[in-house]
Computed example of a mutant assay.
Amino acid sequence: MIVATTNDLPGHRVVRVIGMGRGITVRSRNIVSDALGGLQSIVGGRIGAYVKLAESARKEAYEALIEEARAMGGNAILAMRYDANEIMPGITEVLAYGTVVVVEAE
Rank of each mutant, 00 (worst) to 15 (best):
V3R: 05
V3K: 01
A4F: 04
A4H: 08
N7Y: 09
N7R: 12
D8S: 05
D8L: 10
H12G: 05
H12Q: 06
R13Q: 01
V14R: 02
R16M: 03
I18S: 02
G19R: 05
G19V: 08
R22C: 01
G23L: 08
I24P: 04
V26K: 13
R27I: 13
I31K: 13
V32D: 10
S33T: 05
S33P: 04
S33M: 07
G37W: 01
L39C: 13
V43N: 11
G44W: 03
G45V: 05
R46N: 11
I47P: 00
A49W: 02
V51W: 10
L53F: 10
A54N: 14
E55G: 15
S56A: 15
S56C: 14
K59G: 15
E60T: 15
A61H: 05
A61T: 07
E63G: 08
A64F: 09
L65I: 14
E67I: 06
E68G: 10
R70H: 07
A71I: 07
M72S: 00
G73S: 02
G73T: 01
N75L: 00
L78A: 05
M80I: 15
R81S: 10
N85C: 11
I87N: 12
M88P: 06
P89L: 02
P89Q: 03
P89S: 03
T92V: 15
V94H: 12
V94A: 05
L95M: 08
G98I: 06
T99S: 10
T99E: 14
T99G: 10
V102W: 03
V103N: 00
E104T: 01
A105C: 10
E106Q: 08
E106N: 07
